[in-house]
């Protein structure tokens, strides 16, 4: 077991495991975000965000989540470096291969998602937790951060919306390969199951990305 996670396959298994974990998290995140456009009021969203920010279990989970992100990114970078080193002289002529397009650009889509993540954390997480620049709202006698308002303000700005949509499309590319690739890395290969997984990956990627993109569009074009 000692060398398991330092081996090339071990690293990939870790990457895949963390990737699947983040895929689940994305669903939860999307669910909460959608509250903003499902309900007239921002209250349900703010209550949910508050719950996520204060519940002890979720707090612990939050650490795991940060750890997960960090490991996924770190391992991704290590693996990428090793892969680049493995071919010191590149080919003069390449041929667009007929295989999975997005798999070749995982590191590129990852960088874009990474940049977004930094901005995102600064805007919401750090604002709320440390800088305290978030307005407050009282719901049923209790004070909450009005993160919903923050979102509405951001999504009234045109270039923010564009940047957000652009990022999520790249996230989609990342997921299109990542989702099914994770199962292959886990060694799952089955005559009937594998096609189902591949289809699920496509459905998941499209639904999640569409869900996230829908929010700024509704807010920007809504009243």
């Amino acid at each position: 077991m000692t060398n398991f996670f330092t081996s090339s396959i071990g690293k990939k298994i870790l990457m895949a495991g963390l990737g699947l974990f983040l895929i689940v998290f994305l669903l939860v995140h999307l669910g909460i975000n959608l509250l903003l456009i499902i309900f007239e009021s921002r209250d349900p969203f703010n209550i949910a965000a508050h719950f996520m920010g204060t519940n002890v279990l979720i707090k612990i989970f939050e650490l795991v989540l940060f750890g997960g992100f960090l490991l996924h990114i770190t391992y991704g970078l290590i693996v990428q470096m090793q892969n680049w080193i493995a071919r010191p002289v590149s080919y003069a002529k390449t041929h667009p291969s007929q295989t999975s397009f997005f798999s070749k650009y995982m590191i590129h889509t990852a960088v874009i998602i990474g940049i977004f993540l930094v901005i995102h954390l600064f805007d919401f997480y750090l604002q709320a937790k440390i800088f305290g620049g978030v307005p407050e709202v009282v719901i049923d006698g209790k004070t909450y951060h009005d993160l919903g308002l923050l979102v509405f303000e951001k999504f009234k700005i045109g270039w923010v919306v564009i940047f957000y949509i652009f990022t999520f499309i790249f996230l989609g590319f990342h997921l299109l390969h990542g989702f099914q690739s994770a199962f292959q890395t886990f060694g799952l290969d089955h005559r009937t199951l594998t096609p189902v997984i591949k289809a699920s990956g496509v459905i998941y990627s499209v639904v999640v990305v569409a869900g996230f993109i829908l929010i700024p569009l509704v807010i920007y074009f809504g009243n």
Binding site: S8, K12, I85, S97, T99, S100, S103, K104, M106
Partner: peptide, 13 residues
């Protein structure tokens, strides 16, 4: 010093 597998499928192709 071989790289790791990204499941791109170029090898199979």
């Amino acid at each position: 010093g071989f790289g790791s597998c990204s499941n791109t499928g170029a090898c199979e192709a």
